[in-house]
Design a protein around this nucleic acid. Structure first.
Lengths: 230, 230
DNA sequence: CGAAAAGCAAGAGCGGTGCTCTCGTTGTTG
DNA sequence: CAACAACGAGAGCACCGCTCTTGCTTTTCG
């Protein structure tokens, strides 16, 4: 399948990798808005027009970086999940959330690319959906394992609206679990709310508001866990 | 103070308003990334260089739009607060949250400008902080009124970390309330998490995940209210 | 093996951007 | 009325994404 056939093909993968590497450097340094194909080409010592042999447009280059970033973040979340295998469900939840926050603070521009403003005329290509789902799947895994060990509180306080229950059933099926619908609904909400917490911190909305960021985050995570039923 | 002195000054405020109006039009139509000074000037029938007599840079124009957008959103939230004056605390909370979501869905590009990626080399000017605080203040008002009517559950489940308590005290002072620290901490978290929910919807992260958006949002808001103590 | 085909790098060029500077005009003010 | 400050317009700079053409090199196939 991926057998390297000749000098040409070998060169192609190397140049492609070099372009992505330099682009990632510029992304981390200046942000997506300031990432320019011409600057990448300049830094690589090639003509800007030559880049278009490898990426048909700037958006395609960005998409490649997006996928890599989703995978990097997903990997961090999954690592936290694996490392906390022996901890309590609540602790595992916090561990995964912490991993997401830590990654976001370490890669603010990549985080912005993933969860900030969608690029102007953007369409999420199909290739991004699987990597994008990894964080959600890691959070769901915590709930699934908690259910297996009896750590999951079953009923939520309020009754679930009918259509929310329908969504929850479908999501549970997509997740391949038989989590109770209230837990799935809470999980989905907590998933988005986690990125509210992280986003506010990365984007500076907590400036002059929250100073004890670490402690505040952990404390808020506990509330999210409670919402899921952990 | 704001007496119009002559034809020149009168023309200045009119042209300034016309620029902002056309810029807002382009922002709503195409998003901040596609907003161009030259296009605004073109549409207004003036030379692009003349725009710089009114806004020293593109970022300054955007900042003006940001302030207006914060005020528009804040106004929506405060209107919901006022209109629900006779409702229960939980209902008022949901009403304010709903107003935020409704505004965001009606003005996605403005919402993106406020809560999406900060613009490239951005510094939040001092003029934005007061308008930006209005939503948070509206949410806090719900909690304050609930405390007055005894609708606020006082103690949170878990003990507040010391430094979080310190933050909460300061925030309560800034808010001019004597809300209990756990409520303030929950309020701050819920504030950011609200924008997690709204942001995921506006930015399309709920695509193929949550279909019953209205019901899901209301249900999730109730969980946020619970987190505050309502 | 040699010719045709395909992949590739480079340059020139198009239309667009933010922004600056100069210059002539026009309203304001001492 | 004269000096001054604000203003509009135009030219121009450096940058951008992207396209097209021109040669060159590698691969492929008769």
């Amino acid at each position: 399948m991926s057998v390297i056939k000749g000098a040409r093909e070998r060169a192609r993968v190397e140049v492609t990798a070099a372009i992505k590497e330099e682009a990632r450097r510029q992304l981390a340094a200046e942000g997506a808005a300031r990432l320019s194909l011409r600057a990448v080409a300049r830094e690589l010592g090639m003509a800007s027009s030559a880049l278009y042999r490898y990426f048909p447009s700037r958006d395609d280059l960005l998409t490649a970086l997006i996928i890599d970033a989703y995978d990097s973040l997903g990997e961090a979340a999954e690592a936290a999940l694996a490392e906390s295998a022996n901890a309590s469900a609540a602790e595992r939840w916090t561990a995964v959330c912490r991993a997401v926050r830590k990654w976001a603070l370490a890669h603010p521009h990549e985080y912005t690319l993933l969860y900030g403003s969608p690029v102007p005329g953007y369409r999420a290509p199909q290739d991004t959906v699987a990597p994008a789902a990894r964080v959600g799947l890691a959070l769901a895994a915590v709930a699934r394992d908690a259910q297996a060990t009896g750590e999951l509180r079953s009923p939520a306080a309020k009754a679930l609206p009918e259509r929310v229950r329908t969504d929850a059933e479908r999501i549970a099926a997509d997740l391949g679990t038989d989590l109770p619908e209230p837990a799935v609904a809470g999980l989905t909400a907590a998933w988005s709310q986690l990125f509210g917490l992280v986003g506010f911190e990365v984007f500076g909305h907590f400036h002059n508001v929250v100073e004890a960021r670490d402690e505040f985050f952990d404390h808020s995570c506990a509330a999210l866990a409670h919402q899921v039923g952990l």
